[in-house]
């Protein structure tokens, strides 16, 4: 059976909130190392990869592999009943028909309990090759969201150029052009505002802004986001959580001309 308790319901609420517009039905794959999810969006342009490691739960118990087939809209309805600060426990039998969720308030003795029906989801897993990215950029997640939403007002696509001069996000639209350039920057007092650019070779890639703006819904999970690029391969956008848990998005580039 599975028993997994989060000290803060907000972690799962934020993760599900960040992916529910990209993915509707998906398996939460539970094993002794934690709970993982891998799913593509309907158009097969983006891939979501979540790992909530066993260490992120206290306690965590999962005797054998269990796939929890979840509709994320339904899960969202149940999670809305949890306060951010509540402790959240997930429970399931070995071959479950339903997922049991318990929300416990720390402030008072309120306990709420829900059973969510599960579904059989035949999901194909993709092998993601280990990649040494040519450019790895770490920046405030709020800054990345701002750049993506600002540029989406002008264009459907953004070109990301990483070079020794910095990283430039630029777009061309019917009403005109826009570009934002960031350089490495260290803020001693507020390291969450740091911008770090690691580059082994220059990169230039174009991506759909609609997807990037969607990924930015995960900004609530982490002050910083890491974006990794290599020419002609999907972009990796990673929001790191405690205990090496993470939420990753991969986005196929636009190629041509």
């Amino acid at each position: 059976m599975l028993e997994a308790k989060l000290d803060q319901a907000s972690i799962l609420k934020k993760v599900v909130d960040a992916i529910k517009d990209l993915v509707q039905d998906c398996n939460f794959d539970c094993n002794d190392s934690g709970i993982a999810l891998q799913a593509m969006d309907n158009s097969h342009v983006a891939l979501v990869s979540m790992a909530l490691k066993a260490e992120s739960f206290q306690p965590y118990r999962c005797d054998r592999n269990i796939a929890l087939g979840l509709n994320l809209t339904s899960l969202t309805k149940v999670l809305r009943a949890a306060q951010n600060e509540d402790m959240l426990t997930l429970r399931a039998e070995d071959a479950p028909d339903s997922l049991n969720l318990v929300f416990e308030s720390k402030a008072d003795d309120r306990i709420s309990e829900y059973d969510l029906k599960l579904m059989d989801i035949d999901q194909e897993h993709l092998g993601i090759p280990e990649t040494e990215y040519a450019a790895t950029i770490t920046l405030p997640s709020s800054e990345f969201r701002r750049i993506c939403t600002d540029l989406m007002a002008l264009s459907e696509s953004v070109t990301i150029d990483a070079s020794k001069d910095g990283v430039k996000f630029s777009c061309t639209g019917d009403i005109g052009n826009g570009a934002v350039t960031l350089r490495s920057h260290t803020n001693v007092d507020k390291p969450e505002l740091n911008v770090d650019i690691e580059l082994s070779e220059p990169v230039s890639l174009t991506f759909s802004l609609k997807y990037l703006v969607n990924f930015c819904k995960a900004s609530a999970l982490s002050h910083q986001v890491k974006i990794c690029l290599s020419n002609e391969v999907p972009l990796l956008v990673e929001y790191a959580l405690e205990n090496q848990s993470h939420l990753r998005f991969y986005l196929a580039p636009k190629i041509g001309d």
């Binding site: 196929a252 636009k254 001309d257």
Partner: peptide
Amino acid sequence: GKQQRSILGFFSKA
């Protein structure tokens, strides 16, 4: 213009 690629063109079915 540039064409949107599929993620399936990069990641293989495991």
